[in-house]
Design a protein around this nucleic acid. Structure first.
Length: 198
DNA sequence: CAAGAGATCATCT
DNA sequence: GATGATCTCTTGA
């Protein structure tokens, strides 16, 4: 299996978001492996995107988004849940892809423990849920997925999602973003059981 | 099943 | 002092 490279992430964010569908999110340390196929993403595309944290300038929280492509951006939302993003595009251009849902592949029994449920479709079908299932928290914020030592990275198992199976639509939970809320920057795999919302 | 409330805190104003 | 790139539980039909 190939690991995704800097070149993959240093491109237009919407393109990266779309091509991440079918790739595999992997968390691996010396005694456990958890992985899942990415089935839903959203693009946050630059300083003018009012839905993006970066639209109001650089702050201590979002400065990772201004850094190099391939770094993880993880933040706490609503006081409860972590959201997992990967930085895209050139340095100093703030953009990232939010990974919203995956389809469980390996380590399902660990996910069940982390999520305190046995219902398969409820393990990783949302940004907060998948972080909980994988045990992802802010310890991983700011590190690079491209680094050999990173326990969290993305692999390519050669799956190609045909264009006819990719749904492109508006993002979730960004009603405050003015005209940007209507931009079609959310991508997911048609008829997949692990999508966060239809 | 759908709709609504409540949980809870880091971050920014 | 307000609020959010969410989720779960309760209510009621």
């Amino acid at each position: 299996m190939k690991k995704l490279t800097y070149k993959f992430f240093n491109r237009k964010t919407a393109l990266v978001a779309r091509e991440l569908l079918g790739k595999v999110l992997i968390y691996k340390n010396k005694d456990q492996i958890i992985s899942g196929i990415i089935v839903e993403t959203e693009a946050y595309v630059g300083p003018k995107d009012l839905a993006s944290h970066a639209s109001r300038g650089k702050t201590p929280r979002n400065e990772v988004m201004f850094g190099e492509a391939g770094h993880w951006y993880i933040y706490l939302i609503y006081g409860f849940y972590n959201c997992l993003n990967i930085v895209t595009e050139e340095k100093n251009y703030p953009a990232a892809v939010l990974i919203r849902a995956v389809e469980p592949l390996e380590g399902i029994s660990l996910m069940e423990i982390n999520r305190k449920t046995k219902k398969l479709e409820n393990l990783t079908s949302g940004p907060g849920k998948l972080c909980q299932a994988f045990g992802i928290d802010k310890n991983l914020n700011h590190i690079s997925a491209l680094n050999k030592k990173s326990p969290l990275f993305i692999g390519d198992i050669g799956t190609k999602i045909p264009k006819s199976k990719i749904i492109k639509t508006t993002r979730i939970g960004v009603d405050y973003a003015g005209k940007w809320k209507d931009k079609k920057l959310r991508f997911y795999i048609k008829n997949n059981a692990f999508i966060s919302k239809k």
